[in-house]
């Protein structure tokens, strides 16, 4: 049995930037978010929103500056960071031979949750996103919007105190965006720290966040 430190959700990025050779992906920026807070990253395409989220999630080393989660350096190799941060950045690889509910049960079980109620939790989460009736579908049988909702369900089914989301509104219609806004609001109200890149003014307004505007990178 290994023991993992339980981190609180303070997110700090101080002067972080990313460059590869002579190409700048992200200009130096600061981000601060505490538990129960939502920060939205805004900026034109190519300004480095996804790069910043990857740095905060510990998936990428910044060229300058430091990023931390719960007071520890943001490094995905640290089991405590992995246990603390749930992220939807890019497309998670799904099992083509598992249905949606199987995926949620798998993720839920691997985090050591009560097996007796795993099915109900998965079903409830799918239902809250409006895709409860698709529980026995395989991922390749979903529309692009349904797929996005399923990815959100996958991200939300695992425990976390920090949520990093890269444009969670993409491919969703207006109604579903409101559903997602409600669900994310609930997560923040329950004490999660939410940092997300977002282009939707309504979703941004619904979460009443702090906003970090990123300057275009070159």
């Amino acid at each position: 049995m290994s023991r993992t430190a339980e981190l609180t959700g303070e997110v700090r990025a101080v002067g972080v930037s990313k460059s590869i050779d002579t190409t700048t992906l992200l200009r130096p920026v600061d981000v601060a978010a505490d538990p129960g807070q939502c920060v939205v990253l805004r900026g034109p395409n190519g300004s480095g929103k996804t790069t910043l989220l990857r740095i905060i999630g510990g998936l990428l080393e910044p060229t300058t500056g430091t990023a931390s989660v719960g007071g520890r350096p943001a490094d995905e190799r640290d089991p405590a960071i992995r246990a603390c941060v749930a992220a939807l950045i890019g497309t998670p690889t799904t099992y083509r031979d598992l249905t949606l509910i199987d995926h949620l049960v798998l993720v839920d079980s691997t985090w050591g949750h009560d097996p007796a109620t795993s099915d109900e939790r998965g079903q409830a989460l799918l239902g809250s996103l409006g895709i409860g009736d698709l529980d026995d579908r395989f991922p390749h049988e979903l529309s692009s919007g349904q797929e996005q909702l399923f990815r959100l369900a996958l991200t939300l089914t695992r425990p976390s105190s920090v949520l990093l989301l890269d444009e969670p509104e993409q491919r969703l219609d207006t109604t579903k965006r409101q559903v997602v806004a409600g669900l994310l609001r609930k997560q923040v109200d329950q004490g999660a720290t939410l940092v997300m890149a977002c282009h939707d003014p309504d979703l941004t307004a619904a979460l009443a966040p702090s906003i970090v505007d990123l300057a275009p990178a070159r």
Partner: peptide
């Protein structure tokens, strides 16, 4: 090939290691 068989079969929840093994079996 797209998978469409045994849709009604469910992955049984359980301990982390066991559920991963059952995942492969279900696959």
């Amino acid at each position: 090939r797209p998978v469409r068989r045994a849709r009604a079969a469910r992955l049984r929840p359980g301990r982390p290691f066991g559920v991963l093994v059952r995942r492969d079996l279900l696959g």
